[in-house]
Amino acid sequence: MTEEERQGLAGEYVLGTLDAAQAQAVRDDPSMATPIAEWEARLAPLHALAPPEAPLPELWVRIERSLQGTAQPRAARSPWFSRFWAVGATAVAAGLATLLVVQRPEPPPLMTVLLTSREAPAFLVEADRGGEIRLAALNNQAVPEGRVRQLWALPAGATAPTSLGLVPEDGRIRVRAAAIRPEPGMLIEITLEPPGGSPTGRPTGPILFIGRLAPARGV
């Protein structure tokens, strides 16, 4: 095989166009490891073209169960057991109470993906019914010099949004606003504001991203 053929084959393996037998042969060839890693690095930005989607909450439970089935000794202990062990005997009663609460069926958490004006996903927002709202950048972009990003919530029927605070540079924030109770249909938006945030208590700058909370659901 010429070097060009090897490179092409590794590229097609990473692209995903090889059939099962060809893919297996490439994967099992140790001399392909480096060209494969190079192709993965070259093409990795294309992952951003797949729109983020929320899996069902049960998926993590299933993963955890499979891991326990195959686990090495260290991971074999049930997480509940080790958690109780860690918190100590005095906290066991409190732990049991938590367990009971956790097992009661709860309404699903709320979430939305804030989109840019071009419909590109920019931020993931998750909200507990209890009131905590979490924001995470999916594709964090630099903020224009001398400006800050401010997060707002607009409950259904409200006439003006309530500030949830400024978005830090890393695009991650966790807030709990006393006046806001997350509910389906609530609008979440991020605007561009002067340093320190909007001087008026209402958005003054352009809306960068916007989305509407909905119950997290799977299929």
Binding site: H47, L49, A50, P55, L59, L124, L138, V219
Partner: peptide, 16 residues
């Protein structure tokens, strides 16, 4: 999980 589920769903186009 959102990003990775999105990557898998774009390939498979079937949530299960």
């Amino acid at each position: 999980s959102l990003r990775l589920f999105g990557v898998a769903n774009a390939v498979l186009r079937d949530r299960d």
